[in-house]
Design a protein around this nucleic acid. Structure first.
Lengths: 104, 104
DNA sequence: ACGACTCATAAGTTTGTGCTTATGTATCCG
DNA sequence: CGGATACATAAGCACAAACTTATGAGTCGT
């Protein structure tokens, strides 16, 4: 998955909203569609794109498809952004706090 | 600058390449164009987009326009990605190393 | 077996993005 | 002043992206 593809995939607000909803819970395609003013095929297509990018994973169960975030798919994005870490200083303190939290 | 806009801006490989070149040095529009198989207006348009997104800043000097990275423009991206930091564990060690480096 | 349900795929339309050529504006230099 | 240089803007075109409706494929319950 190229950087260009990752950015293109995430440039769509509906797809980012889908990721956000999946961040807190595993959901089916139909459940995901709730709250979106979008047709079922449109959602299906977005899901296919997210899956193609490795950003979500699928668990089939009968006629239901359950989706969840595949965080490792964000790796290219992390990696790209890291190239600009020389400019992070103002955020380092936050990171330090975060690490302290996680140590406990 | 919305998340959607930031992602759209960065989804273009030419624009990301421009940022990469500017990360190490301040350059003029013409200098930036070197190595790209692209017309002058095309580059000018990409620059306008990057500037509109707050990702680069301009320093005018006579007829020359010098550009450099405006790292704070990446903030929305950092912020968005941080929402998925719950999935970072495998990267925490790298962060710790990074912080150690920066403390010295 | 049959209708209802969940999701995927196909085809067509519309809108957006990035490019081009042409031209405009401002600055520098001889 | 007048030509050359640096960059921006305008207009038009080609391709890509996201949506729609229609339909297909598989699963469930009665």
């Amino acid at each position: 998955m190229s950087d260009t593809d990752i950015f293109k995939v995430l440039a769509d607000p509906t797809r980012r909203a889908v990721l956000e909803r999946l961040a807190s819970a595993e959901l089916t395609a139909t459940e995901l569609r709730e709250g979106f003013a979008i047709s079922q095929p449109a959602m299906s297509q977005h899901i296919a794109v997210l899956r193609g990018a490795g950003l979500i994973s699928e668990r089939r169960e009968g006629r239901f498809a359950h989706y969840r975030v595949a965080p490792e798919g964000m790796a290219p994005l992390h990696k790209w952004l890291a190239k600009y870490r020389a400019f992070w200083p103002s955020r380092i303190d936050n990171l330090k706090d975060l690490l302290k939290e996680m140590d406990q």
